Computed example of a mutant assay.
Amino acid sequence: MPKSKRERKIHLTQTNKKDRDHKTKIINDVRDAIDAHTNVFLFSYDNMRSSKFKDVRIAFRDSKIFMGKNKLLQLAMGKSASDEYADNLRSISKLCSGSVGLLMTSRPEDEVLEYFKSFTSDDFARAGSVASRTVKVKQEDVANHPVSMIEQFRKLGLPVEVKNGKVAIMGKDEHQLCKKGQELSTEQCKALVHFGHKLATFKVEIKCRWKEGDYVEF
Results as ranks from 00 to 15, higher is better:
residue 74 Q to S: 13
residue 50 S to K: 11
residue 125 A to G: 11
residue 51 S to M: 06
residue 13 T to L: 06
residue 17 K to W: 03
residue 15 T to K: 09
residue 138 K to W: 10
residue 111 E to Q: 08
residue 67 M to A: 12
residue 110 D to H: 13
residue 22 H to V: 01
residue 68 G to K: 12
residue 95 L to C: 13
residue 28 N to F: 04
residue 75 L to I: 14
residue 91 S to A: 14
residue 108 P to F: 00
residue 31 R to T: 01
residue 76 A to V: 02
residue 85 Y to Q: 04
residue 153 F to T: 08
residue 35 D to L: 03
residue 132 S to R: 08
residue 66 F to D: 06
residue 21 D to S: 09
residue 136 K to C: 07
residue 17 K to G: 01
residue 119 F to H: 11
residue 92 I to A: 13
residue 147 V to A: 15
residue 76 A to H: 06
residue 11 H to Y: 04
residue 25 K to H: 07
residue 58 I to D: 15
residue 26 I to S: 04
residue 75 L to A: 10
residue 69 K to W: 01
residue 49 R to G: 02
residue 80 S to F: 03
residue 109 E to M: 06
residue 89 L to A: 02
residue 79 K to N: 07
residue 100 V to C: 14
residue 52 K to M: 11
residue 37 H to M: 10
residue 153 F to D: 13
residue 64 K to E: 12
residue 45 Y to E: 12
residue 35 D to V: 02
residue 116 F to P: 13
residue 23 K to N: 03
residue 45 Y to R: 08
residue 116 F to R: 11
residue 38 T to Y: 01
residue 71 K to C: 09
residue 140 E to C: 02
residue 52 K to Y: 14
residue 89 L to P: 05
residue 107 R to F: 04
residue 14 Q to D: 13
residue 56 V to A: 11
residue 67 M to L: 11
residue 102 L to N: 14
residue 146 P to H: 03
residue 22 H to P: 00
residue 149 M to A: 13
residue 23 K to H: 03
residue 33 A to K: 04
residue 110 D to G: 01
residue 10 I to V: 07
residue 28 N to T: 02
residue 126 R to E: 15
residue 59 A to F: 05
residue 127 A to I: 05
residue 148 S to M: 07
residue 99 S to I: 02
residue 111 E to V: 01
residue 15 T to Q: 05
residue 53 F to T: 13
residue 133 R to T: 15
residue 91 S to C: 14
residue 110 D to C: 02
residue 42 L to Q: 10
residue 66 F to Y: 08
residue 18 K to I: 08
residue 140 E to Y: 11
residue 32 D to T: 10
residue 78 G to F: 02
residue 106 S to G: 12
residue 65 I to S: 07
residue 20 R to Y: 09
residue 104 M to V: 08
residue 142 V to I: 09
